[in-house]
């Protein structure tokens, strides 16, 4: 979480003193990209509880094919971006700050807790919202509950092992 925030500060903060509103011009682009992502989540059916069950029961290759080819595409793209030392269209050098490993407990424990929630709701965070858009409006309750979950983590964070 903290590593992500640092990257955002680099991304939005550069030249922020003289032009604090520059990144706002790009908000419509993020809206458009988000809409494209919501559309892809729907057409690929990865937002479906049924598809998640198929995956956790190892009864279809589909979800593994989707996740595997998504990772492969992203990895090749990242390698190209690094090799070409590309800059973003806002002129910032592109970098992906690595997550800090530490003891690893937060990833194992947090990951397992999320996995249980993923199987129960049949949706990870993106699909929760895409499902609301698709008319499965009860997922609004799941999204609000997810917010409560995130808030609870923030509250209890000093007391859980990382």
């Amino acid at each position: 979480m903290s590593t992500l925030s640092v990257s955002e500060f680099q991304g939005c903060g550069s030249g922020g003193a003289e032009k604090p509103e520059a990144p706002l011009r790009f908000l419509p682009v993020y809206l458009l990209l988000g809409a494209a992502f919501g559309f892809v989540l729907s057409r690929s059916e990865v937002l479906s509880w049924f598809r998640i069950q198929e995956m956790f029961r190892f009864q279809s290759f589909r979800m593994y094919g989707i996740i595997g080819s998504a990772v492969a595409t992203a990895a090749v793209s990242l390698a190209l971006i690094k090799a070409l030392k590309l800059k973003s269209v806002q002129g910032v050098a592109i970098s992906v700050p690595p997550k800090v490993l530490g003891s690893g407990i937060q990833y194992a424990a947090g990951g397992t807790i999320f996995g249980i929630g993923w199987a129960l709701t049949g949706a990870c965070p993106g699909p929760l919202f895409a499902l609301v858009g698709n008319g499965v409006t009860v997922m609004l309750a799941a999204a609000i509950s997810a917010l409560l979950g995130t808030w609870s983590y923030g509250w209890i964070k000093p007391k859980v092992p990382h």
Binding site: A109, G117, W118, T121, A123, A142, S145
Partner: peptide
């Protein structure tokens, strides 16, 4: 399920 998704992903 929703609560666990929110708690787990933040953790």
């Amino acid at each position: 399920g929703g609560f666990l998704v929110g708690f787990g992903t933040a953790y």
